Measured scan of single mutants.
Amino acid sequence: MADQLTEEQIAEFKEAFSLFDKDGDGTITTKELGTVMRSLGQNPTEAELQDMINEVDADGNGTIDFPEFLTMMARKMKDTDSEEEIREAFRVFDKDGNGYISAAELRHVMTNLGEKLTDEEVDEMIREADIDGDGQVNYEEFVQMMTAK
């Protein structure tokens, strides 16, 4: 299944994987998964984290390695993001709930994920998604960005 991913997608997933893999040992533990999910405003229980890991832990060693992570991402993409997942993601970014993602809100979430971005990089990300040019990202623009192939 992971063989249907483009090189660009694999590179993006590698970057995402390293955000989860806090200690850089090449595997994601339940603790690391929990840290990232909490930084995104989720509050999973230990059991939920274990279930999430077990779902993709092909070799049964209790952690997720990069090939397992790729399989999980490929699977998720095949079920292409349901509207509800996209709306949920939008809410994570839209901290003040005004229906727009500002540069400050984007920077806040990315920083929580451990991504240190310059102001230019954040502005560039907003510009790429900002179709109507108002300097922020509304829900429609967010959907376009998330579903762009």
Results as ranks from 00 to 15, higher is better:
residue 1 M to S: 08
residue 1 M to W: 08
residue 1 M to G: 08
residue 2 A to M: 01
residue 2 A to E: 14
residue 2 A to S: 11
residue 3 D to N: 10
residue 3 D to K: 13
residue 3 D to E: 12
residue 3 D to T: 02
residue 3 D to P: 09
residue 4 Q to N: 15
residue 4 Q to G: 06
residue 4 Q to H: 06
residue 4 Q to D: 06
residue 5 L to P: 11
residue 5 L to V: 09
residue 5 L to Q: 09
residue 6 T to C: 04
residue 6 T to Y: 03
residue 7 E to C: 06
residue 7 E to N: 01
residue 8 E to D: 11
residue 9 Q to V: 03
residue 10 I to R: 03
residue 11 A to D: 13
residue 11 A to Q: 05
residue 11 A to N: 13
residue 12 E to T: 04
residue 13 F to R: 01
residue 15 E to Q: 09
residue 15 E to H: 10
residue 15 E to T: 03
residue 16 A to Y: 10
residue 18 S to R: 14
residue 18 S to F: 12
residue 18 S to W: 09
residue 19 L to Q: 13
residue 19 L to V: 14
residue 20 F to K: 06
residue 20 F to P: 03
residue 20 F to N: 03
residue 21 D to R: 09
residue 21 D to Q: 08
residue 21 D to T: 00
residue 22 K to C: 13
residue 24 G to K: 12
residue 24 G to C: 10
residue 24 G to A: 11
residue 24 G to S: 11
residue 26 G to F: 09
residue 26 G to T: 05
residue 27 T to M: 10
residue 28 I to H: 04
residue 29 T to G: 00
residue 29 T to L: 04
residue 29 T to F: 07
residue 30 T to S: 12
residue 30 T to W: 00
residue 31 K to H: 14
residue 32 E to S: 15
residue 32 E to P: 01
residue 32 E to M: 03
residue 32 E to H: 15
residue 32 E to N: 09
residue 33 L to P: 10
residue 33 L to K: 00
residue 33 L to M: 03
residue 34 G to H: 05
residue 35 T to N: 05
residue 35 T to C: 10
residue 35 T to P: 10
residue 36 V to C: 07
residue 36 V to P: 01
residue 36 V to K: 00
residue 36 V to S: 07
residue 36 V to Q: 03
residue 37 M to T: 11
residue 37 M to V: 13
residue 37 M to N: 15
residue 37 M to D: 08
residue 40 L to S: 10
residue 41 G to V: 10
residue 41 G to W: 10
residue 42 Q to W: 04
residue 42 Q to N: 04
residue 42 Q to E: 05
residue 43 N to T: 15
residue 46 E to D: 09
residue 46 E to S: 03
residue 47 A to E: 14
residue 47 A to H: 10
residue 47 A to S: 12
residue 48 E to W: 14
residue 49 L to R: 14
residue 49 L to K: 02
residue 50 Q to W: 07
residue 50 Q to V: 03
residue 51 D to M: 05
residue 51 D to L: 02
residue 51 D to Y: 10
residue 53 I to D: 05
residue 54 N to G: 02
residue 54 N to D: 13
residue 55 E to T: 00
residue 55 E to G: 13
residue 56 V to D: 02
residue 56 V to P: 01
residue 57 D to F: 06
residue 57 D to E: 13
residue 57 D to P: 00
residue 58 A to N: 03
residue 58 A to P: 15
residue 59 D to T: 15
residue 59 D to G: 12
residue 59 D to S: 08
residue 59 D to C: 15
residue 60 G to H: 15
residue 60 G to S: 14
residue 60 G to M: 10
residue 60 G to K: 15
residue 60 G to P: 05
residue 61 N to H: 01
residue 61 N to P: 05
residue 61 N to A: 14
residue 62 G to K: 11
residue 63 T to W: 04
residue 63 T to Q: 04
residue 63 T to Y: 00
residue 64 I to T: 13
residue 64 I to S: 10
residue 64 I to F: 13
residue 65 D to A: 11
residue 66 F to V: 12
residue 67 P to A: 11
residue 67 P to Y: 00
residue 68 E to W: 07
residue 69 F to M: 00
residue 70 L to F: 06
residue 70 L to D: 01
residue 70 L to I: 13
residue 71 T to H: 06
residue 73 M to P: 06
residue 73 M to S: 01
residue 74 A to I: 01
residue 74 A to E: 02
residue 74 A to R: 06
residue 74 A to Q: 04
residue 75 R to L: 15
residue 75 R to F: 06
residue 75 R to W: 07
residue 76 K to V: 08
residue 77 M to E: 03
residue 77 M to H: 09
residue 77 M to S: 14
residue 78 K to S: 14
residue 79 D to W: 14
residue 79 D to C: 15
residue 79 D to A: 13
residue 81 D to L: 05
residue 81 D to H: 00
residue 81 D to A: 14
residue 82 S to Y: 03
residue 82 S to H: 14
residue 82 S to T: 04
residue 83 E to W: 11
residue 84 E to Q: 09
residue 84 E to W: 03
residue 84 E to A: 15
residue 84 E to Y: 09
residue 85 E to P: 00
residue 86 I to R: 03
residue 86 I to E: 04
residue 86 I to C: 06
residue 87 R to K: 08
residue 88 E to Y: 14
residue 88 E to S: 06
residue 90 F to D: 10
residue 90 F to G: 08
residue 90 F to T: 06
residue 90 F to M: 05
residue 91 R to G: 02
residue 91 R to Y: 15
residue 91 R to M: 09
residue 92 V to Y: 14
residue 92 V to P: 07
residue 94 D to P: 01
residue 95 K to R: 14
residue 95 K to H: 14
residue 95 K to I: 04
residue 95 K to G: 04
residue 95 K to L: 03
residue 96 D to E: 10
residue 96 D to Y: 04
residue 96 D to L: 02
residue 97 G to A: 14
residue 98 N to G: 12
residue 98 N to S: 10
residue 98 N to D: 11
residue 99 G to N: 08
residue 99 G to W: 08
residue 99 G to V: 09
residue 99 G to T: 04
residue 99 G to D: 13
residue 100 Y to I: 07
residue 101 I to A: 11
residue 101 I to C: 15
residue 102 S to F: 04
residue 103 A to W: 01
residue 103 A to F: 02
residue 104 A to I: 01
residue 104 A to N: 02
residue 104 A to Q: 04
residue 106 L to D: 15
residue 106 L to I: 14
residue 106 L to P: 00
residue 107 R to G: 14
residue 108 H to R: 12
residue 109 V to Y: 03
residue 109 V to R: 10
residue 110 M to E: 02
residue 110 M to L: 12
residue 110 M to W: 03
residue 111 T to V: 00
residue 111 T to R: 01
residue 111 T to L: 10
residue 112 N to L: 08
residue 112 N to P: 09
residue 113 L to M: 01
residue 114 G to C: 03
residue 114 G to S: 00
residue 115 E to W: 04
residue 115 E to F: 01
residue 115 E to P: 14
residue 116 K to C: 10
residue 117 L to Y: 04
residue 117 L to G: 07
residue 117 L to I: 12
residue 117 L to S: 12
residue 117 L to W: 00
residue 117 L to C: 04
residue 118 T to M: 10
residue 118 T to H: 06
residue 118 T to I: 13
residue 119 D to P: 02
residue 120 E to L: 10
residue 120 E to D: 10
residue 121 E to L: 00
residue 121 E to K: 08
residue 121 E to V: 09
residue 121 E to N: 01
residue 121 E to I: 04
residue 122 V to A: 13
residue 123 D to V: 07
residue 123 D to K: 05
residue 123 D to S: 11
residue 124 E to T: 15
residue 125 M to S: 04
residue 125 M to P: 01
residue 126 I to S: 13
residue 127 R to H: 03
residue 127 R to N: 11
residue 127 R to L: 14
residue 127 R to F: 05
residue 127 R to E: 01
residue 128 E to T: 05
residue 128 E to H: 10
residue 128 E to K: 09
residue 129 A to K: 14
residue 130 D to I: 01
residue 131 I to W: 14
residue 132 D to V: 09
residue 132 D to P: 00
residue 132 D to L: 00
residue 133 G to C: 01
residue 133 G to H: 06
residue 134 D to L: 03
residue 134 D to T: 14
residue 134 D to F: 03
residue 135 G to P: 07
residue 135 G to L: 01
residue 135 G to R: 10
residue 135 G to Q: 03
residue 136 Q to G: 01
residue 136 Q to T: 08
residue 137 V to M: 15
residue 138 N to F: 14
residue 138 N to T: 08
residue 138 N to Q: 08
residue 138 N to L: 02
residue 139 Y to N: 13
residue 139 Y to C: 10
residue 140 E to K: 11
residue 140 E to V: 10
residue 140 E to Q: 13
residue 140 E to F: 04
residue 140 E to H: 06
residue 140 E to S: 07
residue 141 E to P: 05
residue 142 F to N: 03
residue 142 F to A: 04
residue 142 F to D: 04
residue 143 V to D: 04
residue 143 V to R: 15
residue 143 V to W: 07
residue 144 Q to A: 00
residue 144 Q to F: 03
residue 145 M to Y: 08
residue 147 T to G: 15
residue 147 T to C: 07
residue 147 T to Y: 07
residue 147 T to R: 08
residue 148 A to E: 00
residue 148 A to V: 13
residue 149 K to A: 10
